[in-house]
Write a protein that binds this DNA or RNA. Sequence first.
DNA 1: ATCACACATGGGAGCGCTCCCACCCTACCC
DNA 2: GGGTAGGGTGGGAGCGCTCCCATGTGTGAT
Lengths: 351, 351
Amino acid sequence: MGSGQPRGRSGGRPTLEEVAARAGVGRGTVSRVINGSPRVSEHTRAAVEEAVAELGYVPNTAARALAANRTDSIAVVVPEPESRFFSEPYFSDIIHGVGTALADTDMQLLLTFAGGDRERRSLAQYLSAHRVDGVLLVSVHADDPLPDLLQQLEIPAVISGRRSADEPLASVDSDNFAGARAAVDHLLGRGRRAIATITGRLDVYGAQRRLDGYRDALAEAGHPVDEALTALGDFTEEGGRRAMTELLARRPDLDAVFAGSDVMAAGARQVLREAGRRIPDDVALVGFDDSAIARHMDPPLTSVRQPIAEMGRTMTDVLLAEIADPRPAVARRLTRQQIVLPTELVCRASS
Amino acid sequence: MGSGQPRGRSGGRPTLEEVAARAGVGRGTVSRVINGSPRVSEHTRAAVEEAVAELGYVPNTAARALAANRTDSIAVVVPEPESRFFSEPYFSDIIHGVGTALADTDMQLLLTFAGGDRERRSLAQYLSAHRVDGVLLVSVHADDPLPDLLQQLEIPAVISGRRSADEPLASVDSDNFAGARAAVDHLLGRGRRAIATITGRLDVYGAQRRLDGYRDALAEAGHPVDEALTALGDFTEEGGRRAMTELLARRPDLDAVFAGSDVMAAGARQVLREAGRRIPDDVALVGFDDSAIARHMDPPLTSVRQPIAEMGRTMTDVLLAEIADPRPAVARRLTRQQIVLPTELVCRASS
DNA sequence: ATCACACATGGGAGCGCTCCCACCCTACCC
DNA sequence: GGGTAGGGTGGGAGCGCTCCCATGTGTGAT
């Protein structure tokens, strides 16, 4: 903004050629300066930069993409039908982190929704056409074919949350196991003995790991794991309600509940209240995610915080590194990063 | 996916030329088919479509953008530093709506963060380079220079939430005035008489309109507007707390509070509770936004719902129409749309 | 002075597409 | 039978850039 922009022929934006003419150099030289090549003399560089500034030159991405066969953009793929995804701040936070990481680069962020079958197909096409330099996969299901497609197309990709213990793609995850352990250890420390858990969908690896952490904590404390104290949820509030009802029926003597997500904890709380159980006096409650819900619940919910924005940032860093890495995919595969970020227990009044 | 893709020269993706060769037609004809031109015989069209399918041809966007001078993508501009933006589901919901609207097209969605000064500058550059066909502006401040820049560059743009009564850009907003009226009418209907309000930042037009609605409802009911019952907040929880403290000091006899956002209502609730006021027995509380917080608050918060996802969808539709509109900007200006979507009061236990 | 070589530079050759003009062929009309 | 539309079609001319090769130009070694 600011000074007027002298134009080329037809009022369009200035081109490389025009910058070259103004600076009294060739097209190639300007290109070198724009792209930070070292093979330009200091003097020439200065002249070109001046011309660029004077004309307000901005490279044409389309032309660059066509000629160089790269797009300077990455895609975040969102499995849209998962309304859970949009109802939790997870999405915003990841995107926030990605945005932060991208701010230092001139990469652009493309948002893609792989919702229905049609979108999925057109997404596959889109990716096949190599219209992005890399892909960030957010909350992918175990049976999603997308990751394999990406691998086959040799498109750099990073996934949020591993799909299994041996995730072939680069991934960034939070330490679900340690988070769950911390939550249960905390409950044990407060003297709770009949600690139940409400799990998320177990085909989500993270949910499984939270359950593992719960069991591990109990086992280490010398508590026998009572299957009656485990109820399956599905990450929804309604699922939390159902699971809590079940638990109460099976083990009316329970004195603590570790829920695999805050939303499920909220559902559980309703049932507990209706059953006349006071929180935390009769039953302590701990959630997972530390979302806004946790802070505003009554009583405020103790919850395991995941560094979601940081996950987004890290995913982006890893992806950018993969894109920049000149080594062939085969060599790279050996070093595919599996990053696990620490979780943290946030104690509030519910426990 | 599926069948193997025969390749052109060097293992790359097939080009228009190759499709043409295979179908036994010229390049122009294939282009016409791809772009749905009617000037192709039925017979030829079929042959081309078969060749396209066989080769798994996907047009190269970069080449198309370069040749046709359009990008088939729109940008959503997010004023990132507003952390409020990320802490509320507003963002996700808008994006969700935009995604839905875009699913029917082959437009791509670009997410841009106009946070710091540097990002702002590079965004201006980005837009100047016409790297998107249109822009969706989300929650823009009254003094933001971006809208003017867009208008000057003649880039189609739609803004969420008008900046003033005579917004020059196309805009989509929710009916803040009617929403506030409904909330206050509801409180009046429940017999509340000393109804206070906590406003958002009044340089946000929507916050002003909510205040207007509050006043209008009281005036129409024959209540004198008592300035002591109006406190300024800033959309934050802390702001809500401060405002509530003020109100309680000024008018200890108040029996209802209409907050300009759920988050501020949450802050107010804390103060009310600390002051020993029961909700809704002593003081009724109504929020605005109907966010997740409202449902999980204790007691659940009555709140004015905004159709945020629908706003995103509508913004996109309007933008696509503007992009498709062949009329010059001058002619279009006369018909710039100002769409206002209805709000709805969601009654819960807090009132 | 001569040769070799590195570095700086200019510009041709595309990248894959759209736009548009020229061409051809088939009615159809006089 | 010749003339005239007009729909179908082919392909040239770019779009603005990067890549790379060819061409200087200056330096140090011989």
